Simulated assay, not measured.
Amino acid sequence: MKRQNVSQTKVLILPFPLQGRINPMLQFAKRLVSKGLDVSLVTFCGNKPMTVHARCSVKLEPVFDDLGADDLLHKSADDYLERFNAVVTLRLPQIMAKLGMCKSENPASCLVYDSLVPWALDIAKEHGVYGAEFFTMSCAVSTVYYNVHEGLLKVPIMEPCVSMAGLPLLQARDLPSFVYDIKAYPTFTQLSTDQFSSFKKADWVFFNTFTSLENEVVKWMSKQRPIKTIGPTIRSKYLDKRVEDDSDYGIHLFKPEMDICVKWLNYKQTGSVVYVSFGSLATLGEDQMQLLALGLKRSERNFLWVVRETE
């Protein structure tokens, strides 16, 4: 890309609306902004606003579910996915048009979409926009899902050990839960394997890793199609400090209490605290909460446990 055309390049980032998937794509967006590109990030908010850090350098394009749905993060996974897919499918072309990303206006435009929303590539192509698929997980985990998608790994898993190219011999229970126990997580099993439906059609494929960390599996995946490793996508403060004032991710699905937590942690010895979090979607039942609480108590260790008000 010619240096003088960098500022004219428009990039739209579309993460799946879970904190662990927003964070790496947001950090990637900050890197692009630091290189002079015009970058916007789609934030699906349900019907509640996200908490946004004032110094976030990436322009945001909030998408609300304006049909009056309840807080979607407390709905079932199927309901959440259905609303997200429906609303973003409708709004995404409108956002691209507003940003002037259509081919006739800006032939260098690109949509970087989360691998969990492979259908976004079809929308990009319909509007003459390049599409780049972004895998937020390690290449090793993604390779397991690729093998399931391609029929190279048959599920349910019947054998005690599993052999896959680029990976060491694994016991069945070493596999991701969505593969090892597909009956327990049918929605997420389907979601995780479907991410490869656009893998060979995207203009570029990015993996949130670096080659020396996963050398063998990255080489194997590169033989399936050209890929680029662009990780680790963490805050620049803890990496190379090339992005100014990058000490906070900048966007939060839930209001963080970082100051309280850090102040408490500062009084604890290094390596003495157990951290417990089940992510943005998972919710625990009463029995599970009780069992986990008893286990933490019996560990006789300090612990920091992320618990929602509803739990």
Rank of each mutant, 00 (worst) to 15 (best):
Asn47Arg: 08
Ala69Met: 15
Asp114Asn: 15
Ser299Asp: 06
Pro160Thr: 06
Glu257Asp: 07
Pro17Gly: 10
Ala202Asp: 13
Glu300Leu: 05
Lys125Arg: 15
Gly68Ser: 09
Asn302Leu: 11
Ser277Asn: 15
Pro15Trp: 12
Thr193Cys: 07
Met137Gln: 13
Met101Gly: 06
Pro186Ile: 03
Leu121Cys: 13
Val155Ile: 13
Thr136Ser: 13
Trp264Asn: 04
Leu12Ile: 06
Phe199Glu: 09
Pro15Leu: 08
Lys103Pro: 00
Lys98Asp: 00
Trp220Val: 11
Ser109Ala: 14
Val11Gln: 01
Ser76Thr: 10
Thr51Phe: 13
Ala172Ser: 05
Asn302His: 14
Leu294Asp: 03
Asn208His: 02
Asp66Ala: 15
Arg31Glu: 02
Val205Phe: 10
Pro160Gln: 11
Gly151Lys: 03
Ala184Gly: 07
Glu61Val: 01
Tyr113Phe: 12
Ser177Trp: 07
Ser76Ile: 03
Pro49Cys: 10
Met50Leu: 15
Lys10Ala: 15
Tyr185Ile: 08
Gly68Arg: 12
Thr143Ser: 13
Val276Thr: 02
Asn147Ile: 06
Val162Asn: 04
Phe303Tyr: 14
Lys241Asn: 04
Leu191Ala: 07
Lys35Glu: 07
Ile95Glu: 02
Lys154Arg: 14
Tyr113Arg: 03
Val42Lys: 09
Val39Trp: 00
Asn47Asp: 08
